[in-house]
Design a protein around this nucleic acid. Structure first.
Lengths: 371, 371
DNA sequence: AACTGCTTCTGAACCGTTACGGTTCCAGAC
DNA sequence: GTCTGGAACCGTAACGGTTCAGAAGCAGTT
């Protein structure tokens, strides 16, 4: 098996047609609509194509004419390494890929990492639609995508008028978790959260920063916590919230250390992701704190490692999320909807999973009689 | 933020030029060569574009003219789920993605799963090149790729004349492993290997099947074992080789069980992948066999879990492998090579990692006095 | 006055294909 | 002998850009 020799000038459908003395249409039909010409002629066309080294119709020219690229673009404002290492991102990616596979569509990963200010990659991508995953609402790539006249589906965040969205009900899910912790009797809590905006801030997140967060998901989760704990008399401004730019177990551990150092009275650590919670768990062990006896720790996402660790968390079906987004984009149910501008929103079920890392605080009174 | 209202008919570069009373060239330049027109005119062009809802030059039309798609295709004849679950595949994928990110190129995952007989997805992909990863040498998608007049790089397998390739020296690496096991004194060995061909065969792989294997990598590794052990008097035809179609830890375990049931005299289990070896390890523990005292087990690849388990294995830099393939495709060093048809081959370094799962057989003589 | 050089803009030729709406031909029906 | 209908094939017009050679205008130089 060896590669065909390239002729001086690539053969085209037109040159092949000329060679055969037939019209271009006929050659095109030989490839795309075999029933439109006699088997004999078709055989001749294909045979001559082979001799001339004609590789078949050019995909780009075809795309131009048919207005179909046969691929969707995935925008993820994150280093691609992250997408391949973070279990949640990987699950979503897998779900999307599955949906694409189902419909025979390509999935194009767009290079739009943090360092990449160049939006042109979005403008140059020949795709029939976009899936946007976990992007801050002020991202330039995102506005580039929205300018393109192709359908777009956003996963999780941001929430944009007129754009389809797939995601869990973060507010409800986090409220359920907050209620769980409240019911256990915790009133002295601390929060670990993921990146709130593009500018790195590893440390406490002020109230202002929380409200101005460009990552919608994180903001919603914090709001839900603030509301629920506010209802039982916990003043949110007194609740320590520690932010981490990078999303790793190690960062979760340092965040927990930072929080516990400054607020040793805390009886429950609520984390906006499992990864951070697993880090907190590590840090708790390092300090000799028993979980949940001395410290309650909760996560969010329901990744495999969390289940293994018995973490109390909110499970969300990450793979389904990706698959739903892909299906929404690829299966044009939208055609049935009479209103052209109608937006579809798919809300995914979440489930509060109570594990072995949450329990009543050791002495509920401790807070009142303080040191 | 909301989407621009779509006009009756999408504006094009031509309609925009007409509206402005300038030539198409000028509009094109406004987007692609700002220095070619006065700032004032450029501002007007962009402003009018905004008013008309013109989304900028169509990427497909641009690609047709410039003969650049800005993306490379990844062919992987495997369910995409596999690519996202298998640590080796994931590492390779990450490496490729990194290389693409470096050069601002998109990475298009082609849907070419096992069930997908349709080669048209390969023909329809508008890409500037292909990376082929771990594909059997008789795969129809592969020949589709090779027909396309774009550069192609193959990772691992198959080995095709005139096509660039990136991969380890499997023969040398496996020979090193075989020598290690030979030097420990093992003469009664068993082999667990991955899929040899597209047709499922979970069980013993006959000599014929081994020789006809369509997965070049597996064949090479087996050949290396056969040669090395042949040199010390072990007749290869007597060595049990158990094949598994799916590549999971569970399959490794059942393969080990199958082999050990039929060949209890075996003192060393050489596996062609870490995943299979980890399964074998599980099965050995289940049977109460001590590793390495009762049974030596070796792997191949050097994944993280293997390191954690102390597995004796051959480490190969999977991420580098992907990155090298991407770089080879994207950085056209090829231009410097005078011979147009010259082929580049990058061979990656491997390293024999001796862990805690290999040791001398308990009684080397056992084999000679055997039952 | 002719020449040079620079900036700014234009005209026309592609890029390779498919959609659309035909025309031609011929067998069989009437 | 005309009509009908289907199979086979064709010509033209997009699809939406980029690119290159040059034209026009104008200031400065010799």
């Amino acid at each position: 098996m060896s590669r065909p020799i390239r002729t001086r000038r690539q053969a085209t459908l037109a040159s092949l047609a000329a060679e055969l003395g037939v019209s271009r249409t006929t050659v095109s039909n030989a490839y795309n609509r075999p029933d439109q010409l006699s088997p004999e002629l078709r055989r001749r066309v294909l045979e001559t194509a082979r001799q001339l080294g004609y590789p078949g119709p050019d995909p780009v020219a075809r795309s131009l004419r048919t207005r179909k690229a046969g691929a969707v673009g995935l925008l993820l404002t994150e280093n691609l390494s992250y997408a391949f290492r973070d279990p949640v991102a990987l699950g979503v990616l897998e779900g999307i890929a599955l949906a694409c596979e189902d419909s025979g569509t390509g999935l194009q990963l767009l290079p739009a990492g943090p360092g990449n200010e160049d939006v042109s990659t979005v403008h140059k991508a020949g795709v029939d639609g976009f899936i946007v995953y976990s992007v801050p609402d002020d991202d330039p790539h995102l506005s580039g995508v929205l300018q393109r006249p192709v359908p777009t589906v956003i996963i999780d965040q941001p929430l944009i008028d007129g754009v389809d969205r797939v995601g869990p009900d973060d507010a409800a899910a986090m409220t359920a978790m907050a209620n769980h912790v409240v019911e256990l009797g915790h009133r002295s809590i601390g929060i670990l959260c993921m990146r709130l905006s593009q500018d790195r801030n590893d440390g406490p997140a002020s109230m202002l920063r929380q409200h101005q967060a460009h990552y919608h998901t994180q903001r919603t989760r914090l709001d839900a916590l603030a509301t629920t704990f506010g209802n039982v008399g916990v003043e949110w401004s007194t609740v320590p919230v520690i932010e981490r730019f990078d999303h790793t177990v190690a960062d979760g551990a340092t965040a927990a250390a930072e929080l516990l150092d400054a607020n040793p009275e805390v009886t429950a650590l609520i984390c906006t992701s499992d990864i951070l919670a697993l880090g907190a768990l590590e840090e708790a062990h390092r300090r000799g704190l028993r979980v949940p006896a001395d410290l309650t720790i909760t996560g969010f996402d329901g990744i495999a490692d969390a289940q293994r660790a018995g973490l109390t968390t909110v499970h969300q079906p990450v793979q389904d999320k990706g698959h739903a987004a892909g299906s929404l984009l690829l299966n044009p149910i939208r055609k049935t909807s009479t209103v052209p501008g109608s937006t579809q929103v798919i809300t995914l079920d979440t489930e509060l999973k109570i594990g072995t890392t949450s329990a009543q605080p050791r002495t509920t009174e401790q807070h009142w009689f303080g040191p």
